[in-house]
Design a protein around this nucleic acid. Sequence first.
DNA 1: CGACTGACCTCGC
DNA 2: GGCGAGGCCAGTC
Length: 112
Amino acid sequence: MKNVPKSNFQSTVYSVVASIPRGSVATYGQIAELAGRPGAARAVGTCMRNNKDTHTVPCHRVVASNGTLAGYAYGDGLSTKKKLLQKEGVSFKTNGTTVDLKANQWQPKRSR
DNA sequence: CGACTGACCTCGC
DNA sequence: GGCGAGGCCAGTC
């Protein structure tokens, strides 16, 4: 059944990613920080790769710090990821592989 | 239990 | 502004 969190960290990461509102995107570093482990962006990516529930954990809403689509282990990869984001109302740059963070980056608390 | 990898991030040239 | 190397965290083999 769906994904079965083995570690607390993974569970936290899933909760954060699942908390991202539709039409917004968050960076790995931001998720890692919200998960309680700032700087563990790689660990977040590791968990996402093992993620089995793309519907419960919209990993496609997670992008790199610069807004570029890091990766996607489902569908056609980044192509599907980009398509999903566009369907949710996320704006993309001219290259077509970068998200407009200043317009779609998720802000959990409205700070900084 | 030990070591390598990986959907990253930041600094340097 | 683009390319390259190093470092940090967690997971999997």
